[in-house]
Amino acid sequence: MNVSITVNDQLLTHDVEPRLLLVHFLRDYCGLTGTHVGCETSICGACTVQIGGKAVKSCTLFAVQADGESVLTVEGLAGEGTLHPMQQAFWDAHGLQCGYCTPGMMMTAVQLLADTPRPTREQIAHGLKGNLCRCTGYTKIIDAVERAAGAK
């Protein structure tokens, strides 16, 4: 069936199987491979994107469910060649190592700061509950989100 999804401000229409997962729509139909598949069971959050400004796990959504919606992926966080304050903060704070969880982590963190502009470190940690990182041990991720909050 046809789905039309606005991805990073661009309206994209594709004929897809209803069972196509949103993450595969983004990766395979839109060529946006910054959104990753980690666990497939809605635990790790590597596939997190935003729909209408809300972080969601794109491996647990069929693309058809996002029909007519506006999706933001990591590629759309900032204009080409520039960094969103969250990206800059992750860079400055060494909030990433292998980088695989990072896009999903940032997509959640951006909503976290939209909801709670001045979070405590504990609030940040709890806000990132749905995003797993196996490299950093999280400390520098929390540093990064704190730094991004300060940059606003």
């Binding site: 809605s42 959050g45 997190t48 729909i51 809300k54 972080a55 969601v56 796990k57 647990t60 959504l61 959640t108 909503q111 976290l112 806000g127 509950k129 749905g130 995003n131």
Partner: peptide, 9 residues
């Protein structure tokens, strides 16, 4: 319940 992403959906 769950996490931010789960609660959103």
């Amino acid at each position: 319940i769950g996490d931010i992403q789960v609660r959103n959906k």
